[in-house]
Amino acid sequence: MNIFRLIGDLSHLASIFILLHKIQTTRSCRGISFKTQALYVTVFATRYLDLIFGEFVSVYNVIMKLFFLGSSCYILYLMKMKYKPTNDPSIDTFRLEYLLGPCTVLALIFNFSFTPVEILWSFSIFLEAVAILPQLFMLQRTGEAEAITTHYLAALGAYRALYIPNWIYRYYTEGSWDPIAVLAGLVQTGLYLDFFYIYVTKVLQGQKFELPA
C-alpha cells in the first residue's frame, strides 16, 4: 500500500457516498446512468470472484471489495425500485453491446492465463475502463448536470487517476508492473480528461456544469 493508492481508494469510497447522498437527499436518481451503474456491478462481480477463488490479501482488501459489491447492488436497487419514477431510461441510450463485445474479445486475447477466473478478471479490468461511457454520453446529451453529480464523477475519476502514480511508485519500489491494469487504467483516466477540464474551470469556480454548445 502506498499513499496514492490509499487516497485513490478513499476517493472511490467517497464517490459512492456522494452518489448515495445525492439519491437520498434529492430522492431522485435524475442524471445518473443506470447502465453505467449496472456495468459497475458487473465489473465488481467478475473481478471480486477472487474473494472466493483467489488468495487472501488483507482485511482491508476484503472489506473494501465487499463494500463495493454491496453498495453498487444497493444503488441498482434504489434506481430500479425505490426511486424508479425518477429514472429516465429514454436519455440513457448508450448501446451496451459496443462495450461488452470488445471487452469480451480483449479479455479472451489478453489475460494472465486462459482460465475462466482469469478471463473474467481481465474482462472486469477492460470493462471498468469504459463503464463510465454511458454516464458521460448521457451528460453529453443533456448538456448539463447537477453539481453533486459532477462531484461524484470527479471523485470517481480521481480514483483511477491516482492509481497511475501508484503504478509508477510500485514500478520503482517493486520493479514490476501489470500491463493489463496499467494500459486499461490509462484509457480509463483519459476518458475523464474532458470532464475534468470543465469540472475545474466551471464547477470549482462556482458555475453550473454546462457543456459548450
Binding site: 481508494d9 472511490h12 477472487d50 488483507s58 510500485r170 517493486e174 520493479g175 514490476s176 501489470d178 491494469a181
Partner: peptide
C-alpha cells in the same frame, strides 16, 4: 518485468 500486480489492488 511484468507481474500480476493488480491482484492485490481494488
Amino acid at each position: 518485468q511484468t507481474t500480476e500486480h493488480s491482484k492485490d489492488e481494488l
